[in-house]
C-alpha cells in the first residue's frame, strides 16, 4: 500500500490526510504543535456566516479518527529521496518512509510589533485580530475596553501591501475579517462606534459584499479610506491614531478605546524551513512556488512532493479545503500513472 506523509496539522493537512486515508492510502500526519487545528483553532467565529470555528476543527478531527496516524509535537529534521521514496527523519529520531510528501505547513501571522509606529506590545490598548478572537472566546471583551471614548478602530493591511516590511502582497482574508469583527464588536458593545481604516476593501468571496453592506446598514460601522500612519497614547491611556481620510482629503485624528491590527499572512517558519530542506523554489512573496501557477498548483518541482493550503500563499478556509482536495487528487494521479511533473 502506498503511503503519504502530510506535514502540518492545520486545515489543509487535516483535510488532505482524511481524504487520502479515505482513498485507501496509509497516511501519517506530522504536526509540530501539541494539538491539531492550526490557526483556525484559535479563531472564534468565521466569516461570512458567523459559524463557530470549533465546528470546522471538530469535523476535520472526527474524519481523521483511526484512519490517520497523527504524530503531535513532532518536527521534520531532514528529508532524503532514495529509490523513489522519501526517508523523513523526525526530531524523535524516528525515520519514516513515504511514497509521497504533502507539505501543508501553512502561514504565520505577521508579527505586529514590526510595524513599530502602531505600538503593538507598547500601547496598552493595541491588539491584533487574533488577540481579539481570543478575547471573544474568553468572553472578556467588556474588560478590555475602558469606556472612555466608546470607539474602536480596526486597521487593515498590517504587514500586507507594505514595502516597508517587505510584504508587497495582499493577505486576502483580512478585509472580510475586519468587517466580520466590526459586526461582532457592534453586537457585543452596542454603544460603541466601530471604524475600519482600509486602503481598498477587497470583498472577493461569495457573500462578502453582503457582509460589508450588513456592517454599514444594520450595524452602522464606519469605513475610513486611509492607512493609519501612527498610533500613540493620550494621558487617559486611550489610543490616538492618525490617518488621512482620503475621501475627505484631510488628515484625521481620533481617540479610541481599542485598536485592532489585522495582521496579514507570512510564510510560516516551517514552510520556509521545509522549502529550504528540499531546495524548493519560492515566489517573490517568499511562499512556496508551485510547478505551474495555473495547471500544477499543488505540485512542487520535485517528483513526489506536493503542496496544499497557505504554504503557497494567503487563503480562506474554504479555499484551503478545496486546495487540499485538489492536492489529494494530484497525489492519487501520481500513484496511478507514475506521471512525473509535466513540463
Amino acid at each position: 500500500m502506498k503511503n503519504v506523509i502530510v506535514i502540518g496539522g492545520g486545515v489543509a493537512g487535516m483535510e488532505s490526510s482524511a481524504q487520502l486515508a479515505d482513498m485507501g492510502y496509509q497516511v501519517t500526519l506530522v504536526e509540530k504543535e501539541s494539538k491539531l487545528g492550526g490557526h483556525v483553532d484559535q479563531w472564534d467565529f468565521l466569516f461570512p456566516n458567523h459559524r463557530p470555528a470549533r465546528e470546522i476543527i471538530d469535523s476535520l478531527k472526527q474524519r481523521l479518527n483511526y484512519k490517520v496516524e497523527v504524530k503531535l509535537g513532532t518536527e521534520v529534521e531532514s528529508m532524503q529521496r532514495n529509490n523513489g521514496q522519501y526517508a523523513v527523519k523526525l526530531n524523535s529520531t524516528e525515520v519514516l518512509h513515504a511514497d509521497a510528501l504533502l507539505l501543508a505547513s501553512g502561514f504565520d501571522l505577521f508579527p505586529a510589533q514590526k510595524k513599530e509606529e502602531y505600538g503593538y506590545g507598547i500601547y496598552n490598548h493595541v491588539i491584533t485580530a487574533a488577540d481579539l478572537e481570543e478575547i471573544f472566546r474568553s468572553g472578556n471583551l467588556r474588560k478590555v475596553v475602558s469606556g472612555n471614548t466608546h470607539r474602536i478602530g480596526i486597521v487593515h493591511c498590517v504587514g500586507s501591501r507594505d514595502e516597508k516590511v517587505g510584504n508587497e502582497y495582499c493577505s486576502k482574508v483580512c478585509c472580510v475579517t475586519g468587517v466580520k469583527q466590526a459586526i461582532r464588536l457592534r453586537e457585543a458593545l452596542p454603544e460603541y462606534e466601530v471604524f475600519n481604516f482600509y486602503m481598498d476593501l477587497r470583498m472577493f468571496g461569495r457573500y462578502f459584499e453582503d457582509l460589508y453592506r450588513e456592517a454599514q446598514e444594520k450595524w452602522g460601522v464606519q469605513f475610513v479610506r486611509g492607512r493609519v500612519s501612527e498610533a500613540s497614547e493620550d494621558v487617559k491611556g486611550n489610543v490616538v491614531v492618525k490617518v488621512e481620510d482620503t475621501l475627505a482629503g484631510r488628515p484625521m485624528k481620533i481617540s479610541l478605546d481599542l485598536l485592532i491590527l489585522l495582521t496579514g499572512f507570512i510564510p510560516s517558519k516551517g514552510t520556509s524551513r521545509l522549502g529550504d530542506l528540499l531546495q524548493l523554489e519560492f515566489g517573490s512573496d517568499r511562499f512556496l512556488k508551485p510547478a505551474d501557477e495555473h495547471l500544477l498548483r499543488n505540485h512542487s518541482k520535485l517528483e513526489g512532493v506536493f503542496l496544499a493550503g497557505a504554504c503557497t500563499g494567503p487563503r480562506s478556509i474554504a479555499e484551503t479545503i478545496t486546495d487540499a482536495r485538489a492536492a489529494v487528487l494530484e497525489i492519487a494521479a501520481f500513484f496511478r500513472d507514475k506521471v512525473t511533473v509535466h513540463e
Binding site: Q113, E116, Y120, G121, I122, Y123, N124
Partner: peptide, 10 residues
Amino acid sequence: MKLEGKKRIW
C-alpha cells in the same frame, strides 16, 4: 504603556 515593548525596539 508597556516599557518592555519599547525596550525590545531599543
